[in-house]
Structure formats: C-alpha cells, structure tokens
Design a protein around this nucleic acid. Structure first.
Length: 571
RNA sequence: GGGCCCGUAGCUCAAUGGUCAGAGCAGAGCGCUCAUAACGCUUAGGUUGGGGGUUCGAGUCCCUCCGGGCCUACCA
C-alpha cells in the first residue's frame, strides 16, 4: 500500500466556477483520488478556496458585504457545488484560515532568515477615490501606441502592446472610473528566486516523466530572457495574511499582506492541518504527509492544475519550500491541463458564456457531466464542449452502452429466472474468451489510471462496458433458453455478475451510478476486481437482486437545443 | 517581437522512426428481439494543413510557409 497526496489547484473565491475550471483540476484530481483509494492506497486529497487578493475585495464590495463574510458565504457555496459533483476531498479548506496565516508567516520568516527576502521600494498607482493601490490591470486609459481608449495598465487588448500604467494617456481607475490617481512610493517584500534558480532548474530537469506541457512552461520561465526573476510577495491590501508579524525579520510592512500566489499553495499544507484539526488529530497526523523527516519520505505527491497555474507550482511554491531550508515534501508529479473551450469560443465568466457548475447540476446529475468532461479532458491540447457532442456521448456511452446493458440483462433474468442469480450450466469457451478479454482490458485501464491518462482510461472503460453487450449478443441467452436453459442460466449468471464488476471499475468516473448498480445488485461490498475470474462469479446462484431504475436517461434534441440557446451568453 | 503547443476520416481523438495510419460517434448494409428503437456484425471514409529535406523507412526528425490556440511574470 502506498501513500498518495493529491492536491487540486485552488478555485478562486469570487464566484461560481465553470466547467472548464472544473475539468482542469478538481475533477481529474477526484478521479485519481477515487481510483487510488479503490486500489487500497492511503490517500489524502486536499483542496480549498483561494480567498485573498484584489478581486475578492472588489467582489465583496459589489455584493455589499464585508470581505470576510463574503468569502465565508462563497466558500459555503463552492463547498456545496463540490459535494454536488461528488468531489471527494478529504478536506476542502480556506486559504484565509488561521492555520494558513500561521504557516505562511512561518515560511516567510524562514525565507527572511535565510536571506532570501529583500525589501524593494517601488512606485505604484494609488487611487484616492478608491482608497487603494491599483494593480496594473485595474488601470484603464488610452493606448499610446494605437489610441484604443480602453487599454489596460499591463497590456493593450487592441494592439497587444505591453504597457506600463504610466504609459497610459488619461489613466483612470477601472474600478470607479476616477481619474484622481497619483503615483506613490511603496515598499514590498521580494522573494529572491534568482538565487534559487540553479536548484529549481536541477530539480525540474530531474523530472523526466512530467507532461510536456508542465516542463515546457517551467523551463520557459526558468530560461527565458534573463531567467527566473525575483518576485514581489506582498501587496497593499487589507484582506490577507499580514506581512508584519511578531518575529518577522523585517520592519515597516504594516498594512500590507502577502500576495495570494505566495499564500495560496501554502494552503495545501495548511488545509491538511485543518483536516487534522477537524478530526481531532494531533500535529503528527498531518505532518506525516508533508515533512519528509516525519514520515512523508514515502509519500507520492501529485498536483492537478490548469496550464495557467503551472509557473506557480513548478517555480514559486518549490522556491518557497526549498528556500525555507526545512524538509517539506515537494511535488512528485505535476499533471497539467489545457483549456476547455465552449462551442467555438472561450468560457467567459464576465459574459456568462458557457455552463457554470451550479447550472450544470440544475440540468443533469453529476455523473453525466463527470463522464463527458473526463472522457474529453484537454490533455494533449485545448478541447471543446459542444452540446451536440455532449448529447451524443451521454446518450451513446452512458444510456446505450452501459445503462441499457444493465437494464437488458436484469430484465431478461427477471422474466426468465426471477429476481435472483440463476443456477445451472457452466462456463464454456465463450466465457473463457470473455474472461481473457476483460482481464487484459482491466490491466490496460489500470495502467492508464496509474499514468493519469484520463481520456485513454475513459476509452478503455467504455470498451469494457461494450464487451458485455458483445458477449450477450454472441451468447444469446434468449435463444438458448428455449432448447438449453442450463446454458442460458450460465450466461445470465455471468452477465449479472458483470454489473458489480462494472460498478467497481466505473466508480471513479460515475460514482453515483456505480452506487446504484451495487445497491440494486445487493453487492455494496464489491471492491476492485483484482481477480477477474473470481469477481465474475462473486454473486452466487440464488443471490437476490432488484431491477434498477433507468441508470441514465437520454438527452432529447429539443432540450439540447434549448440549453444551447440558454447558455450562449449573458448570464 | 520572443517562446511554447496544436493541425490526422464529416465530428471528437489515438498511433516507442518500422506490417496496410487506428478507435468512438455520425453514414451505408446485414443480423438479433433480452433491453432505455437499445445491442451485435460487416463496410465505406485519409496525398496525416502545403512544400522541401534527412533516412533503407517519416504522421513521427530538420527547414520553410499557412492556419488555430496559449504564455510573456501586478487578474488569479
């Protein structure tokens, strides 16, 4: 038994995430966690809301709430949606927790004592009307290059020129529109990543098996231009982890907080500590996952994230941990995903384009979405959601291939033998051939899951489902029943046994349906089919079952068309 | 500007430099009647974006052009 630590990139607090966010980190992480648990490994699966930063403050202001209240409420909403999608976190924490405050400050202190933090004075734009410093992208004005009047302080969206906020003509606050801006000097802490470049580079180079998407992004940041740059890790905000605290090896940081990208990954660790707190466990319970000197040396740590998160997980966070000079567990495998597009364009939170997590669950149960999203995960390149494709996949894969299989064999058995596994007959060459085929497929499926090849695993699982239909068609128990009822009984007994077998294999993808299948077959204890032959005769003659409700309904053309129109834009 | 990724059947995607480039869906034909009109079998469909090159051999490696996407460090 191995110990697997799994983290999903933290969803930001300011609203409900769309399906692209879901498939890029939380959902595949859940698939992997469920699979590893099913294989008997000890799993710690951690996620949390990422709650600090300017967007959270602005969203709270817009909602007319104190930011702490807003975050608490939105955390509850996101936790509820996570449950709705059956995301099996061991803990879903909050980056604003007391644990994270303490650990963030501790690590910053260690970095400071190691000489890896310096104070840098810089000039930033301050908005008197808004009472806050403005991040570059929150300053708008006219582009000096092309004259576009809504250019942002970091870049002009019209001509793509990189800008400095002070380049803008007639700059104004993107928050309030106020032109009452001034440039003020402010001091910030910088993490001296440059001095860690060699160590990080060597560490990245040693990861031969990481996805090309992961290493190519990491290497670009390491080597591009002048290489890895020092990075500001504080901001002039109220909401966050205070950068001035007792024992801090610097002074003058009052009123400043750590930058979200400094404290967010630390929350992976803190959330594990929160988990221990919630369960009344001691410090050692979480430290054995994270401290290589306290038991984590044999942990395999796997992270899941969208490609936009890769630099922070391959460079900044490792720099924080390495620089602390404490034996923290570093990630072993970084699984990154491309983007999921929506019907010819991008998902857009601001324009309400695409399907958001709450909307998805209001239309169809989680399993439908889980299956489509995972079987189309954007692993090799960006992928695209279309309603036609979604409808086709759900109807064909789930309703026809799997759902109808369960339906046809349970109803056939009920009609000919009653609602119990029939006795009589024996396996012949056809059954042995099925066993051989399924054994090979289960091995291939497991290999894909171990390698986190999500789409390939889904394709193999579907083939395993289809094998049941092929077998039934070939054995034709409805015909055999007339002149060789013993043979029909043996066929039916085997086919009935395929249901708990399928349920166990499918549970990581479609946990609810798998549960329904096991409940209907009264086989709740069915685990991973390590021994396929034994599993396929696990339900003995006489074992009672019930014919389950329709597992998956079909999506009609009319509702597909209606959804297509409803989610086209403007939420 | 620089960099990275992608381009394969109508659609979504596979293919350590090595049999005839493969699956699923959609299409065509046949079969079955247990089943959610479901299932199975057979079959058609490709100058692997274009053009050059390396090689005994290229979807795969190199160059170039075309097209799409992403990143470029203060949104997260």
């Amino acid at each position: 038994m191995a110990r697997i630590l799994i983290t999903s990139a933290l969803p930001y607090i300011n609203g409900i995430k769309h399906l692209g966010n879901l498939v890029g980190s939380q959902l595949p992480a859940d698939l992997y966690a469920r699979y590893m648990r099913a294989r008997g490994h000890e799993v710690m699966f951690i996620c949390a809301t990422d709650e600090h930063g300017t967007p959270a403050e602005l969203a709270a202001a817009k909602a007319g709430q104190p930011v702490a209240d807003y975050c608490a409420e939105m955390h509850g909403v996101q936790a509820g949606l996570a449950r709705g999608f059956r995301l099996s976190f061991d803990h879903f924490g909050r980056s604003s927790s007391a644990r994270n405050h303490a650990l963030t400050q501790h690590l910053a202190q260690r970095l400071g004592e190691a000489g890896l933090i310096e104070v840098v004075a810089e000039k930033q734009v301050y908005s008197l009307a808004d009472g806050r410093f403005l991040p570059d992208r929150y300053i708008e004005g006219t582009c000096p290059n092309c004259g576009y009047d809504r250019a942002r302080g970091d870049q002009c969206e019209n001509c793509t020129k990189q800008l400095d906020p002070t380049d803008l003509i007639d700059p104004r606050s993107a928050i309030s529109g106020s032109t009452d801006l001034e440039v003020r000097e402010t001091r910030h802490l910088y993490l001296r990543q440059k001095s860690l470049r060699g160590a990080i580079s060597a560490w990245i180079d040693s990861q031969a098996d990481w996805p090309i998407l992961t290493t190519s992004i990491a290497k670009k940041w390491l080597n591009d231009g002048e290489g890895l740059q020092d990075r500001g890790i504080t901001r002039d905000l109220d909401w966050g982890v205070p950068a001035q605290f007792e024992g801090a090896p610097w002074q003058g940081m009052e009123g400043k907080v750590f930058y979200v990208w400094f404290d967010a990954p630390i929350e992976y660790i803190s959330a594990t500590a929160e988990w221990a707190d919630v369960h009344g466990l001691g410090e050692e319970a979480w430290r054995r996952w994270w401290r290589t000197d306290e038991g984590a040396a044999d942990v395999r740590y796997v992270q899941f994230m969208g490609k936009d998160n890769v630099p922070f997980h391959t460079l900044s966070f490792p720099a924080t941990l390495m620089g602390s000079d404490e034996p923290w567990k570093l990630v072993d495998y970084v699984k990154s995903f491309n983007y999921l597009n929506y019907d010819g364009g991008q998902f857009s939170t601001s324009q309400g384009r695409g399907v958001f997590m709450d909307q998805a669950l209001s239309i169809l149960p989680a399993d439908y979405w889980r299956w489509w999203l995972l079987s189309h995960a954007p692993e090799s390149g960006d992928s695209e959601f279309t309603w036609e494709n979604f409808q086709a996949s759900v109807n064909k894969d789930l309703a026809d291939v799997l759902g109808n299989f369960v339906s046809r064999i349970t109803k056939f058995c009920r009609a000919k033998f009653g609602e119990a596994v029939p006795a009589g007959g024996a396996w012949g060459p056809r059954e042995e051939a099925l066993l051989t085929d399924l054994s090979a497929r289960v091995a291939a499926y497991a290999a894909h899951m171990e390698a986190i090849e999500v789409r390939k695993a889904a394709a193999e699982l579907r083939a395993i489902w289809a094998a049941g239909n092929e077998y039934l068609q070939s054995a034709a128990p409805w015909a055999a029943f007339k002149d060789d009822p013993e043979q029909a009984a043996a066929t039916t007994r085997l086919a009935i046994n395929l249901i708990p077998f399928y349920a166990a294999l499918s549970a990581p993808f479609i946990p609810d349906a798998a549960g329904e299948m096991l409940a209907a077959m009264r086989a709740e204890g069915a685990g991973w089919p390590g021994d396929v032959r034994a599993t396929l005769s696990a339900l003995p003659p006489g074992h009672g079952f019930t014919v389950p409700e329709v597992l998956f309904r079909k999506i009609a053309d009319e509702e597909r068309a209606e959804w297509q129109a409803r989610f086209a834009g403007r939420r």
